[in-house]
Design a binder for these strands. Structure first.
Length: 638
RNA sequence: GCCCGGAUAGCUCAGGGGUAGAGCAUUUCAUUGGUAAUGAAAAGGUCGGCAGUUCAAAUCUGCUUCCGGGCUCCA
């Protein structure tokens, strides 16, 4: 008897009855059979040795597939756990999933792992891999499983068992086994290269009230070369770290005198101001008005807004004339007071008030991270007050606005999350439902892919967040759009509608870049410090072949600066190669080399960083070239 | 807040119970050189802070501050 299965490319494959996914892979090609890690049958990822049925759709998963990687890393975590229990008997196992890049396993062990331990564990893993032990799936009656765990002292597994419906499945490698849904790679031998990266504490089930476990992070690959490449990539990524580049390029610093409060140096301030100027222009184009609200406001306001209830621990307080005041953690209450200051008509709506709002939040010191997580930052914030009918078009426009700004900044790779009502919220349930639906509608109508994050909304409304990854692929929230029916009510905002009745406006909180600090940090990493010309702190370095041409070089520098170009001259009596190297390492985009020929012709030799000599241009032509790129905010061609 | 690791010159880092090392950067002198490092010299440090052990601590121990990697948190 034979059966047919359907492959991803639409073709069908005829197999003997009882054939497995591995048999199918072998039938397709020997290479595929060699690289096969798992299979996807009717959209479910399963073990390769699982028998197929007639009519199944089948995809063979290799390390090139995201799901293949995930199985590979999950199996690696199993081997890690076995290695740890072999070396450190009495260590309890918990969970060990695959993650975006690699895997981890959480252990309960009396003494924490040391870096030396990691090396030993790696060696034990290599031994297990060399045994090429098959992963064998089995099922066990749950009572029996519980008995076994109790006998082994695997208390965490008992707890996990309680959350499972039906009988649990197990995967064993030789004598070692772990309760697991699977699937797994065929045998330990496929995991050729494993590197344990770090140890960290992690609460059992992510709950602070529970015990802290010892987590080991690792990564693995089917080939040694892949691991080497990955580790090299990691090293390269670390060189892009904005904290490192911020120091090297003299952009910003942090000091013990004000932990978490960034100091913007001259060069960093230029980037900051260029971004802010650009933002202002774009807001102007889109009919926003810029406002400015105070940094300190009395405490009562924060009670009214609900922030005090929820975030007082993260707020700073000061006393003025014996009255309690708070330093603003958000700009919205100030924005509400501006709206409330004048009578409003439906004809005024939507009102779009934009603000570079300087906020302070007391983040835990352990949470701080360069410019990404600070205690003082500036939001490119806006509050849109509108009628219910205007919600969807306004949100639609904001999303377009964000896309446009991110594009100019050079970001195509970001992702979107829709976060819904949290446990601690204000306002009515029905209103929340309407608000969530509105956000979802806009996203759906625009055909935007997003991840749903249930329970992660702001306390006053649901939100759409825009996340961008840093050089180490950690994601950070940047843009945000939050729909709020509660604050306007709490602050008794109203407008006169066309029928003369008073109505409460809807408020949309939104930020495009989010935090200026965070976004600039992300940009520094994105560009590896090679900022686009328009925001480069130094756009041109003028340098002479010898001191004899300093006079002319000074004229050139002056002329460039008179045209608004940030040019600096390197006066040092060094060879031009030295000055070029210096400019290159400081990531200055353009170098203007001046010698005898240039002085006679009134020209400069133009050099672009990373590219090299572009030839000779007259000073005017050079200025025109620069201005074209600056005004149009052009990116460098790669 | 919790777990682990770290802190030596402006930067990157080596060293290690007996008066502190390198490279780069800085300053000075010589050199005036055509697209990623000219040569020489000088200067630069309470080895994060406090206590303890010791004849002697940058080195060992404890505490503490800050930094890094995670967990938790992130309006």
């Amino acid at each position: 008897m034979s059966m047919k299965v359907y492959l991803p490319n639409g073709s069908e494959l005829t197999l003997d009855d009882g054939a497995t996914a591995f048999d199918a892979a072998s039938a397709i090609s020997r290479g595929l059979a060699q690289n096969a890690l798992a299979a996807k049958v009717n959209d479910i990822v399963v073990d390769l040795n699982r028998p197929l049925s007639d009519g199944d759709t089948l995809a063979i998963l290799t390390f090139d597939d995201a799901e293949g990687k995930s199985v590979f890393w999950h199996s690696s975590a199993h081997i890690l756990a076995e290695a740890v229990q072999n070396l450190y008997p009495g260590t309890k196992i918990t969970i060990g999933p695959s993650i975006e890049a690699g895997f981890y396993y959480d252990f309960d062990k009396e003494t924490p792992f040391t870096p030396d331990d990691l090396a030993k564990i790696e060696a034990e893993i290599a031994r297990i891999v060399s045994e090429k032990k098959p992963f064998v799936r089995s099922e066990m009656n749950r009572d029996e499983a519980e008995k076994q765990f109790a006998a082994q002292g695997e208390t965490y597994k008992v707890e996990l068992l309680n959350d499972i419906e039906g009988d649990p499945s197990f995967y064993s490698c030789g004598s070692w086994s772990d309760m697991c849904r699977g699937p797994h790679v065929p045998n330990t031998g496929v995991i050729k290269a494993v590197k344990l990266l770090s140890v960290a504490g992690a609460y059992w089930r992510g709950d602070v009230t529970k015990k802290m476990l010892q987590r080991i992070y690792g990564v693995s690959f089917p080939k040694k070369k892949d691991l080497e490449e990955y580790l090299h990539l990691l090293e390269e990524a670390k060189k892009r770290d904005h904290r490192k580049l911020g120091k090297e390029l003299d952009l910003f610093s942090f000091h013990d005198e004000g932990l978490g409060f960034p100091f913007w140096h001259a060069k960093g301030s230029i980037i900051y101001n260029e971004v802010a100027n650009y933002s202002r222009q774009e807001h102007f184009k889109r009919n926003y008005d810029e406002v400015r609200t105070p940094v300190i406001l009395n405490e009562e306001l924060w009670h009214r807004s609900g922030h005090w209830d929820k975030y007082q621990e993260n707020m700073y307080f000061v006393s003025i004339d014996d009255k309690a005041h708070a330093i603003k953690p958000m700009n919205c209450p100030g924005g509400l007071l501006i709206f409330k200051n004048s009578p409003r008509s439906y004809r005024d709506l939507p009102i779009r008030n934009f603000e570079f709002g300087l906020v302070h939040r007391h983040e835990k010191s352990s949470a701080m991270h360069g410019l990404f997580r600070v205690r003082q930052f500036t939001q490119d914030d806006a509050h849109i007050f509108c009628t219910p009918e205007q919600i969807e078009p306004e949100i639609n426009d904001v999303i377009d606005f964000i896309f446009s700004v991110y594009k100019t900044m050079g970001f195509n790779d970001f992702f979107i999350e829709l976060s819904t009502r949290p446990d601690k919220f204000i306002g009515d349930l029905e209103v929340w439902d309407v608000a969530e639906k509105a956000l979802q509608n806009v996203l759906d109508h625009k055909g935007i892919k997003y991840k749903l994050n249930p329970g992660d909304g702001a306390f006053y409304g649901p939100k759409i967040d825009f996340h961008i990854r840093d050089s180490l692929k950690r994601s950070w929230q940047c843009g945000t759009i939050q729909l709020d029916f509660s604050m306007p009510k709490r602050f008794d905002l109203e407008y006169a509608d066309s029928d003369g009745t008073k109505k409460t406006p809807v408020m949309i909180h939104r930020a495009l870049l989010g935090s200026m600090e965070r976004f600039i940090g992300i940009m520094i990493e994105h560009y590896a410090g090679f900022m686009p010309l328009w925001m480069s702190p130094v756009q041109v370095k003028v340098m002479t072949i010898s001191d004899k041409f300093n006079g002319f070089a000074e004229e050139v520098t002056k002329k460039l600066r008179a045209s608004g170009i940030r040019a600096e001259m390197d006066y040092r009596s060094e060879k031009v190669g030295y000055k070029i190297r210096d400019a290159e390492t400081h990531k200055v985009p353009y170098m203007a080399v001046v010698g005898e020929k240039e002085m006679e012709a009134g020209s400069v030799s133009v050099r672009l960083h990373k590219k090299g000599d572009l030839g000779v241009l007259t000073v005017d032509a050079f200025i025109a070239l620069l201005n074209d790129q600056i005004i149009n905010k052009k990116a460098y061609e790669e």
